[in-house]
Simulated scan of single mutants.
Amino acid sequence: MIEVYTDGASGGNPGRSGVGVYIKAYGKQYEYSIPLKEMSNHEAEFHAVNKALEICLEKFPDEILSFQSDSQAVVVAIEKKFAKNPDFKQILDEILEKASHFPYFFIKWIPSKHNFHADQLAKKAIQMQQK
């Protein structure tokens, strides 16, 4: 099973944004900091899961995925397959489509303090845009 920790960050609401993805697989760790366009923090959180799924499709196809996110809104939207905010419907549909390619896809909410690596990677992605 592949463990995936995701976080989205925004330097304003909206503001410069970034994604952090921290993956633990086969005794190795993989870290990704991905800058995004200007958006809200909630939107960045959805993009974090989407980007992580893109990475997993490329590097870990056909694996069981266990995702963790500190965004309760994202976790609930994915579990219910419904986004209350219509602005998130398209990105949610992309997430659900990508997740369908894996035999099992789990996502659970974790407190921010347990998502330190992904948080730091997301913040790094924002800083990458300022250089």
Rank of each mutant, 00 (worst) to 15 (best):
Q68Y: 15
V76P: 04
S69R: 09
A73S: 13
E54G: 10
K59W: 10
L65A: 09
E54Y: 04
E63P: 14
I64K: 13
S71H: 08
L57A: 10
L53G: 05
I64W: 05
D70S: 09
V76C: 02
D70V: 06
E63I: 06
E54M: 09
I55M: 02
A48R: 01
A73D: 09
K51V: 05
A52L: 07
S66Q: 15
S66D: 14
C56R: 04
Q72I: 08
V49W: 00
D62I: 05
L57Y: 03
I64R: 11
D70Y: 07
S71I: 05
L65V: 07
K51D: 01
Q68D: 12
C56N: 06
L57M: 13
Q68M: 15
S66T: 12
F60E: 12
L57R: 15
S71K: 08
C56A: 06
V49P: 00
D70L: 07
A73Y: 12
V75I: 01
C56G: 06
S71Y: 07
E63D: 15
N50F: 07
I64L: 09
S71C: 11
L53N: 02
E54Q: 14
E63M: 14
Q72G: 04
A77Y: 00
V75R: 00
I55L: 03
A73W: 03
C56I: 03
S71E: 05
K59C: 06
N50W: 04
N50S: 09
V49K: 00
Q72R: 14
S69G: 10
A77Q: 03
F60T: 07
P61Y: 06
N50D: 08
